[in-house]
Amino acid sequence: MKANAPSLVASFGQARNGPGLLFMLPAAAFLLCFLAYPLGVGTWLGFTDTRIGRAGVFIGLENYQSLWNDSVFWLSVFNTILYTVAASALKFALGLWLALILNENLPLKSFFRAIVLLPWVVPTVLSAIAFWWIYDSQFSVISWVLMRLGLIDAPINFLGDATNARASVIAANVWRGIPFVAISLLAGLQTIPPSLQEAASLDGATSWQRFRHVTLPMLSPIIAVVMTFSVLFTFTDFQLIYVLTKGGPVNATHLMATLSFQRGIPGGQLGEGAAIAVAMTPFLLAAILFSFFGLQRRRWQQGGAD
């Protein structure tokens, strides 16, 4: 039996997958430490009554039961869905429009493309602070301009009114998210050979028909990828809300992520905060599954390679 030990090591080294597994170890360790472990601990916390400074005990689904009857939690779910749907739809529409414009032969093309990326390059917190000033109830530049033009009499209460606050944070998120959508779709547009557009125009297509029958179908795989990411980013957004409204006024802009933080860290109820965070997973999973089936290669992309 003793003689077997070294030969086992040797056979491991010679096995086809042996070195491969070895090379994957660092990545696996990284994923385990920084993804799987926090996720596991978070999920576990959701089943306990842990508070800051006090280890909790397992309480089963009690946290989820109390959330089920918590109107603030349900308001945050509604807010998150509204925020995600409205912001993603706007980002898609405006991003696609920008991408189509940037794909034309404009003068100073690369300059404009660089400009479009700016909102994405600026750190979120910085741009959020800029928006905070733009939305200030007294010193807002928008109110100032509109008052100077004589369109309104008093400053707009951007962040103090529930409807205004929702619209404002959505607008800020859209501003920040457009570059990602626009540049990704622009990259997609550039993979469409110009001769296809030329062929379509010779076939008698108007520019709308060219867009509808050639550009859009060929862009659809990239649209699916980009919008999945955009939805995931928006659904889990935290920084913008936290800087602009902290969830106010009266929870009107509280998202699940901000509520989870609010209950868990300042509120000290780690277990409940974790439960709210875990409650986001079914939505995220649904989005991922949707994209997984949406992203499956279309029939026309399969078959003989060039």
Binding site: A199, A205, W300, Q301
Partner: peptide, 29 residues
Amino acid sequence: PPKDRDIAMVFQNYALYPHMTVADNMAFS
């Protein structure tokens, strides 16, 4: 504009619409 000239063109790279079947490609116009 090209669409009003009543001409058909065969391109060097064929320029077939990849998301349409052969029948749809031919019937597009």
